[in-house]
Design a protein around this nucleic acid. Structure first.
Length: 337
DNA sequence: GCGCATGATTGGAA
DNA sequence: TTCCAATCATGCGC
Protein backbone atom coordinates (compact mmCIF):
# COMPACT_ATOMS: atom_id res chain seq x y z
CA UNK A 1 0.00 0.00 0.00
CA UNK A 2 2.72 2.38 1.02
CA UNK A 3 4.64 1.42 -2.06
CA UNK A 4 1.57 2.04 -4.12
CA UNK A 5 1.33 5.54 -2.75
CA UNK A 6 4.96 6.19 -3.27
CA UNK A 7 4.71 5.06 -6.86
CA UNK A 8 1.73 7.25 -7.70
CA UNK A 9 2.24 9.30 -10.82
CA UNK A 10 2.71 12.97 -10.26
CA UNK A 11 3.66 12.46 -6.64
CA UNK A 12 6.77 11.47 -4.91
CA UNK A 13 5.02 10.30 -1.75
CA UNK A 14 7.30 10.22 1.25
CA UNK A 15 10.19 11.33 -0.85
CA UNK A 16 8.52 14.70 -1.23
CA UNK A 17 8.16 15.01 2.51
CA UNK A 18 11.62 13.84 3.26
CA UNK A 19 13.27 16.10 0.78
CA UNK A 20 14.25 18.37 3.64
CA UNK A 21 15.63 15.35 5.44
CA UNK A 22 13.02 15.46 8.19
CA UNK A 23 11.06 12.30 9.01
CA UNK A 24 9.21 13.50 12.08
CA UNK A 25 5.46 13.89 11.47
CA UNK A 26 5.40 17.09 13.52
CA UNK A 27 8.02 18.57 11.32
CA UNK A 28 6.10 17.49 8.31
CA UNK A 29 2.98 19.12 9.68
CA UNK A 30 4.88 22.33 10.13
CA UNK A 31 6.25 21.89 6.65
CA UNK A 32 2.78 21.49 5.19
CA UNK A 33 1.36 24.30 7.24
CA UNK A 34 4.00 26.59 5.94
CA UNK A 35 3.85 25.45 2.34
CA UNK A 36 0.21 24.47 1.64
CA UNK A 37 -2.77 26.65 2.24
CA UNK A 38 -4.64 25.54 5.38
CA UNK A 39 -7.91 25.65 3.51
CA UNK A 40 -6.82 22.77 1.27
CA UNK A 41 -6.36 20.25 4.10
CA UNK A 42 -9.35 21.56 5.99
CA UNK A 43 -11.41 21.22 2.88
CA UNK A 44 -10.33 17.61 2.33
CA UNK A 45 -10.95 16.71 5.95
CA UNK A 46 -14.35 18.33 5.78
CA UNK A 47 -15.17 16.29 2.70
CA UNK A 48 -14.09 13.11 4.45
CA UNK A 49 -16.19 13.96 7.50
CA UNK A 50 -19.34 14.63 5.51
CA UNK A 51 -18.99 11.72 3.13
CA UNK A 52 -21.10 9.40 5.28
CA UNK A 53 -24.03 11.76 5.28
CA UNK A 54 -24.42 11.60 1.57
CA UNK A 55 -26.11 9.18 -0.75
CA UNK A 56 -24.11 6.34 -2.19
CA UNK A 57 -23.83 7.87 -5.63
CA UNK A 58 -22.79 11.21 -4.24
CA UNK A 59 -20.35 9.51 -1.94
CA UNK A 60 -18.89 7.51 -4.82
CA UNK A 61 -18.49 10.69 -6.84
CA UNK A 62 -16.92 12.46 -3.89
CA UNK A 63 -14.67 9.51 -3.25
CA UNK A 64 -13.57 9.54 -6.83
CA UNK A 65 -12.87 13.25 -6.60
CA UNK A 66 -10.83 12.67 -3.45
CA UNK A 67 -8.91 9.89 -5.13
CA UNK A 68 -8.02 12.23 -7.91
CA UNK A 69 -7.18 15.11 -5.63
CA UNK A 70 -3.62 16.35 -5.95
CA UNK A 71 -3.13 16.14 -2.17
CA UNK A 72 -4.33 12.56 -1.96
CA UNK A 73 -1.00 10.82 -2.48
CA UNK A 74 0.79 13.06 -0.04
CA UNK A 75 -1.82 12.59 2.67
CA UNK A 76 -1.85 8.90 1.97
CA UNK A 77 1.90 8.75 2.45
CA UNK A 78 1.68 10.59 5.75
CA UNK A 79 -1.00 8.21 6.94
CA UNK A 80 1.14 5.31 5.81
CA UNK A 81 4.08 6.48 7.81
CA UNK A 82 2.06 7.24 10.93
CA UNK A 83 0.42 3.90 10.67
CA UNK A 84 3.75 2.19 10.13
CA UNK A 85 5.04 3.72 13.35
CA UNK A 86 1.90 2.89 15.25
CA UNK A 87 1.98 -0.66 13.93
CA UNK A 88 5.57 -1.03 15.12
CA UNK A 89 4.55 -0.13 18.65
CA UNK A 90 1.73 -2.65 18.76
CA UNK A 91 3.54 -5.39 16.83
CA UNK A 92 4.15 -8.35 18.98
CA UNK A 93 0.96 -7.84 20.91
CA UNK A 94 -1.01 -9.90 18.48
CA UNK A 95 1.40 -12.76 18.22
CA UNK A 96 0.16 -16.13 17.05
CA UNK A 97 -1.83 -17.86 19.75
CA UNK A 98 -0.31 -21.07 21.02
CA UNK A 99 -2.38 -24.17 20.31
CA UNK A 100 -5.07 -24.26 22.96
CA UNK A 101 -4.85 -27.41 25.08
CA UNK A 102 -8.48 -27.05 26.11
CA UNK A 103 -9.58 -27.09 22.46
CA UNK A 104 -7.40 -30.11 21.80
CA UNK A 105 -8.93 -31.92 24.75
CA UNK A 106 -12.43 -31.15 23.51
CA UNK A 107 -11.55 -32.30 19.99
CA UNK A 108 -10.07 -35.53 21.27
CA UNK A 109 -13.06 -36.18 23.46
CA UNK A 110 -15.54 -35.52 20.66
CA UNK A 111 -13.53 -37.83 18.45
CA UNK A 112 -13.45 -40.55 21.09
CA UNK A 113 -17.16 -40.26 21.72
CA UNK A 114 -17.85 -40.48 18.01
CA UNK A 115 -19.41 -37.02 17.74
CA UNK A 116 -16.60 -35.65 15.63
CA UNK A 117 -14.77 -37.60 12.93
CA UNK A 118 -16.15 -40.15 10.46
CA UNK A 119 -19.72 -41.20 11.02
CA UNK A 120 -20.13 -44.53 12.76
CA UNK A 121 -16.42 -44.80 13.53
CA UNK A 122 -16.02 -43.56 17.04
CA UNK A 123 -19.74 -43.59 17.66
CA UNK A 124 -20.12 -47.31 17.37
CA UNK A 125 -16.92 -47.86 19.29
CA UNK A 126 -18.14 -45.64 22.09
CA UNK A 127 -21.52 -47.30 22.07
CA UNK A 128 -19.86 -50.69 22.12
CA UNK A 129 -17.72 -49.59 25.04
CA UNK A 130 -20.79 -48.48 26.91
CA UNK A 131 -22.48 -51.74 26.06
CA UNK A 132 -19.47 -53.61 27.37
CA UNK A 133 -19.47 -51.69 30.62
CA UNK A 134 -23.15 -52.32 30.97
CA UNK A 135 -22.20 -55.94 30.86
CA UNK A 136 -25.63 -57.28 30.09
CA UNK A 137 -27.27 -58.57 26.98
CA UNK A 138 -30.80 -58.46 28.25
CA UNK A 139 -33.56 -56.81 26.24
CA UNK A 140 -33.77 -53.84 28.58
CA UNK A 141 -30.14 -52.98 28.11
CA UNK A 142 -30.42 -53.49 24.36
CA UNK A 143 -33.23 -50.97 24.33
CA UNK A 144 -31.20 -48.54 26.43
CA UNK A 145 -28.22 -49.14 24.19
CA UNK A 146 -30.27 -48.28 21.13
CA UNK A 147 -31.63 -45.28 22.95
CA UNK A 148 -28.11 -44.16 23.79
CA UNK A 149 -27.02 -44.50 20.16
CA UNK A 150 -30.05 -42.63 18.92
CA UNK A 151 -29.45 -39.75 21.33
CA UNK A 152 -25.76 -39.69 20.47
CA UNK A 153 -26.66 -39.52 16.78
CA UNK A 154 -28.96 -36.58 17.52
CA UNK A 155 -26.17 -34.77 19.35
CA UNK A 156 -23.83 -35.52 16.47
CA UNK A 157 -26.30 -34.17 13.94
CA UNK A 158 -26.88 -30.95 15.87
CA UNK A 159 -23.16 -30.52 16.42
CA UNK A 160 -22.32 -30.85 12.73
CA UNK A 161 -25.18 -28.61 11.65
CA UNK A 162 -24.07 -25.89 14.07
CA UNK A 163 -20.44 -26.31 13.11
CA UNK A 164 -21.28 -25.94 9.46
CA UNK A 165 -23.38 -22.88 10.21
CA UNK A 166 -20.51 -21.29 12.13
CA UNK A 167 -18.04 -22.07 9.37
CA UNK A 168 -20.33 -20.61 6.75
CA UNK A 169 -20.92 -17.49 8.82
CA UNK A 170 -17.19 -17.17 9.43
CA UNK A 171 -16.38 -17.44 5.73
CA UNK A 172 -19.09 -14.97 4.78
CA UNK A 173 -18.00 -12.50 7.40
CA UNK A 174 -14.33 -12.90 6.50
CA UNK A 175 -15.07 -12.34 2.82
CA UNK A 176 -17.13 -9.31 3.63
CA UNK A 177 -14.44 -7.80 5.84
CA UNK A 178 -11.74 -8.54 3.28
CA UNK A 179 -13.70 -6.83 0.53
CA UNK A 180 -14.34 -3.91 2.78
CA UNK A 181 -10.68 -3.60 3.71
CA UNK A 182 -9.57 -3.95 0.10
CA UNK A 183 -11.96 -1.21 -0.85
CA UNK A 184 -10.82 0.95 2.03
CA UNK A 185 -7.18 0.31 1.23
CA UNK A 186 -7.62 2.65 -1.72
CA UNK A 187 -8.23 5.58 0.59
CA UNK A 188 -6.38 4.56 3.73
CA UNK A 189 -3.24 2.54 4.23
CA UNK A 190 -4.06 -1.12 4.79
CA UNK A 191 -1.37 -3.64 4.01
CA UNK A 192 -2.17 -7.22 2.95
CA UNK A 193 -0.52 -8.30 6.18
CA UNK A 194 -3.03 -6.29 8.12
CA UNK A 195 -5.86 -7.88 6.18
CA UNK A 196 -4.38 -11.27 7.00
CA UNK A 197 -4.17 -10.30 10.65
CA UNK A 198 -7.77 -9.15 10.59
CA UNK A 199 -8.81 -12.46 9.04
CA UNK A 200 -6.88 -14.27 11.75
CA UNK A 201 -8.67 -12.22 14.41
CA UNK A 202 -12.05 -13.07 12.88
CA UNK A 203 -11.13 -16.75 12.76
CA UNK A 204 -9.97 -16.58 16.33
CA UNK A 205 -13.27 -15.07 17.42
CA UNK A 206 -15.24 -17.69 15.52
CA UNK A 207 -13.10 -20.49 16.91
CA UNK A 208 -13.98 -19.21 20.38
CA UNK A 209 -17.63 -19.66 19.47
CA UNK A 210 -16.84 -23.10 18.09
CA UNK A 211 -15.12 -23.97 21.33
CA UNK A 212 -18.26 -23.08 23.22
CA UNK A 213 -20.20 -25.34 20.89
CA UNK A 214 -17.70 -28.14 21.44
CA UNK A 215 -17.81 -27.64 25.17
CA UNK A 216 -21.59 -27.80 25.36
CA UNK A 217 -21.59 -30.84 23.06
CA UNK A 218 -19.12 -32.57 25.35
CA UNK A 219 -21.32 -31.76 28.32
CA UNK A 220 -24.36 -33.17 26.55
CA UNK A 221 -22.47 -36.38 25.75
CA UNK A 222 -21.25 -36.64 29.33
CA UNK A 223 -24.77 -36.24 30.68
CA UNK A 224 -26.08 -38.83 28.25
CA UNK A 225 -23.27 -41.20 29.09
CA UNK A 226 -23.61 -40.80 32.83
CA UNK A 227 -27.35 -41.34 32.57
CA UNK A 228 -26.78 -44.53 30.69
CA UNK A 229 -23.96 -45.73 32.89
CA UNK A 230 -26.02 -45.01 35.99
CA UNK A 231 -28.35 -47.68 34.72
CA UNK A 232 -25.54 -50.14 35.38
CA UNK A 233 -26.10 -49.72 39.07
CA UNK A 234 -29.73 -50.64 38.73
CA UNK A 235 -29.27 -54.11 40.05
CA UNK A 236 -31.57 -56.84 38.98
CA UNK A 237 -31.60 -60.18 40.69
CA UNK A 238 -30.57 -63.15 38.61
CA UNK A 239 -33.23 -65.61 37.66
CA UNK A 240 -33.94 -68.42 40.07
CA UNK A 241 -32.57 -70.90 37.56
CA UNK A 242 -29.32 -68.92 37.18
CA UNK A 243 -28.83 -68.72 40.94
CA UNK A 244 -29.42 -72.44 41.18
CA UNK A 245 -26.82 -73.23 38.54
CA UNK A 246 -24.28 -70.98 40.25
CA UNK A 247 -25.03 -72.42 43.69
CA UNK A 248 -24.77 -75.95 42.34
CA UNK A 249 -21.33 -75.24 40.99
CA UNK A 250 -20.28 -73.43 44.14
CA UNK A 251 -21.32 -76.15 46.58
CA UNK A 252 -20.03 -78.94 44.42
CA UNK A 253 -16.64 -77.23 44.26
CA UNK A 254 -16.53 -76.03 47.82
CA UNK A 255 -12.96 -77.31 48.19
CA UNK A 256 -11.90 -74.94 45.47
CA UNK A 257 -14.74 -72.60 44.51
CA UNK A 258 -12.71 -70.83 41.85
CA UNK A 259 -14.07 -71.67 38.43
CA UNK A 260 -11.63 -71.77 35.55
CA UNK A 261 -12.04 -69.37 32.64
CA UNK A 262 -13.80 -72.10 30.66
CA UNK A 263 -16.10 -72.85 33.55
CA UNK A 264 -16.88 -69.15 33.99
CA UNK A 265 -17.80 -68.87 30.34
CA UNK A 266 -19.88 -72.01 30.49
CA UNK A 267 -21.69 -70.78 33.59
CA UNK A 268 -22.23 -67.37 32.04
CA UNK A 269 -23.75 -68.99 28.97
CA UNK A 270 -25.97 -71.29 31.03
CA UNK A 271 -27.18 -68.46 33.26
CA UNK A 272 -27.52 -65.88 30.47
CA UNK A 273 -25.25 -63.50 32.31
CA UNK A 274 -21.77 -62.17 31.60
CA UNK A 275 -18.48 -63.66 32.75
CA UNK A 276 -17.96 -60.53 34.85
CA UNK A 277 -21.23 -61.22 36.63
CA UNK A 278 -20.15 -64.79 37.24
CA UNK A 279 -16.91 -63.48 38.73
CA UNK A 280 -18.85 -61.03 40.91
CA UNK A 281 -21.21 -63.71 42.04
CA UNK A 282 -18.42 -66.08 43.08
CA UNK A 283 -16.55 -63.28 44.79
CA UNK A 284 -19.62 -62.33 46.77
CA UNK A 285 -20.54 -65.93 47.46
CA UNK A 286 -17.13 -66.91 48.76
CA UNK A 287 -16.90 -63.97 51.11
CA UNK A 288 -20.46 -64.32 52.38
CA UNK A 289 -20.15 -68.03 52.83
CA UNK A 290 -16.91 -67.61 54.71
CA UNK A 291 -18.42 -64.95 56.92
CA UNK A 292 -21.36 -67.06 57.96
CA UNK A 293 -20.87 -70.76 57.27
CA UNK A 294 -23.57 -71.85 59.69
CA UNK A 295 -26.12 -69.76 57.90
CA UNK A 296 -25.23 -71.34 54.57
CA UNK A 297 -24.99 -74.87 55.96
CA UNK A 298 -28.59 -75.65 55.17
CA UNK A 299 -28.19 -74.41 51.64
CA UNK A 300 -24.98 -76.43 51.30
CA UNK A 301 -26.74 -79.59 52.44
CA UNK A 302 -29.57 -78.97 50.04
CA UNK A 303 -27.26 -78.67 47.04
CA UNK A 304 -25.19 -81.64 48.24
CA UNK A 305 -28.32 -83.75 48.21
CA UNK A 306 -29.29 -82.41 44.82
CA UNK A 307 -25.87 -83.23 43.44
CA UNK A 308 -25.97 -86.72 44.92
CA UNK A 309 -29.32 -87.35 43.29
CA UNK A 310 -28.01 -86.08 39.99
CA UNK A 311 -24.95 -88.29 40.25
CA UNK A 312 -27.02 -91.39 40.71
CA UNK A 313 -29.39 -90.36 37.98
CA UNK A 314 -29.10 -91.14 34.32
CA UNK A 315 -27.79 -87.70 33.42
CA UNK A 316 -25.44 -87.45 36.30
CA UNK A 317 -22.78 -85.65 34.35
CA UNK A 318 -25.00 -83.34 32.38
CA UNK A 319 -24.95 -80.63 35.02
CA UNK A 320 -21.23 -80.79 35.62
CA UNK A 321 -19.12 -77.93 34.45
CA UNK A 322 -15.39 -77.63 34.31
CA UNK A 323 -12.85 -79.94 35.92
CA UNK A 324 -13.72 -79.49 39.59
CA UNK A 325 -14.09 -82.62 41.71
CA UNK A 326 -17.52 -83.35 43.00
CA UNK A 327 -17.77 -84.01 46.67
CA UNK A 328 -19.95 -83.24 49.65
CA UNK A 329 -19.87 -79.81 51.19
CA UNK A 330 -19.33 -81.01 54.73
CA UNK A 331 -15.81 -82.23 54.21
CA UNK A 332 -14.79 -79.23 52.10
CA UNK A 333 -16.37 -76.31 53.88
CA UNK A 334 -13.29 -75.94 56.01
CA UNK A 335 -11.19 -74.99 52.99
CA UNK A 336 -12.71 -71.55 52.75
CA UNK A 337 -12.24 -70.79 56.43
C1' DG B 1 -40.83 -47.76 55.74
C1' DC B 2 -37.67 -51.14 57.41
C1' DG B 3 -34.48 -54.78 57.27
C1' DC B 4 -32.36 -58.22 54.88
C1' DA B 5 -30.66 -60.16 50.42
C1' DT B 6 -27.91 -59.52 46.63
C1' DG B 7 -25.45 -57.66 42.50
C1' DA B 8 -21.97 -54.07 41.57
C1' DT B 9 -18.06 -51.18 42.67
C1' DT B 10 -13.75 -49.96 44.69
C1' DG B 11 -9.26 -49.97 46.98
C1' DG B 12 -5.70 -52.68 48.59
C1' DA B 13 -2.99 -57.01 49.05
C1' DA B 14 -0.71 -60.93 47.14
C1' DT C 1 -4.31 -59.80 37.41
C1' DT C 2 -6.98 -61.93 40.54
C1' DC C 3 -9.02 -62.08 44.79
C1' DC C 4 -10.61 -60.22 49.20
C1' DA C 5 -13.11 -57.17 52.00
C1' DA C 6 -15.79 -53.30 52.62
C1' DT C 7 -19.24 -50.66 50.91
C1' DC C 8 -22.87 -48.96 47.96
C1' DA C 9 -27.28 -49.27 45.84
C1' DT C 10 -31.22 -51.57 44.66
C1' DG C 11 -34.74 -55.38 45.01
C1' DC C 12 -38.02 -57.53 47.69
C1' DG C 13 -40.77 -59.45 51.41
C1' DC C 14 -42.99 -58.07 55.53
Amino acid sequence: MEDQARGMPGHSGLSVLSQDGVGDPDDRRKHYNSVQPKEDIGDILQQIMTITDESLDEAQARKHALNCHRMKAALFSVLCEIKEKAALSVRGIQEEDPPEPQLMRLDNMLLAEGVAGPEGGGASAAAAAVAATAGDLSDDVSIEHADYREKLAQIRQIYHAELEKYEQACNEFTGHVMNLLREQSRTRPISPKEIERMVAIIHHKFSAIQMQLKQSTCEAVMILRSRFLDARRKRRNFSKQATEILNEYFYSHLANPYPTEEAKEELAKKCSITVAQVVNWFGNKRIRYKKNITKFQEEANLYAMKTAVDETGEHANSTQIGLGLKSGPHCEAAVLT
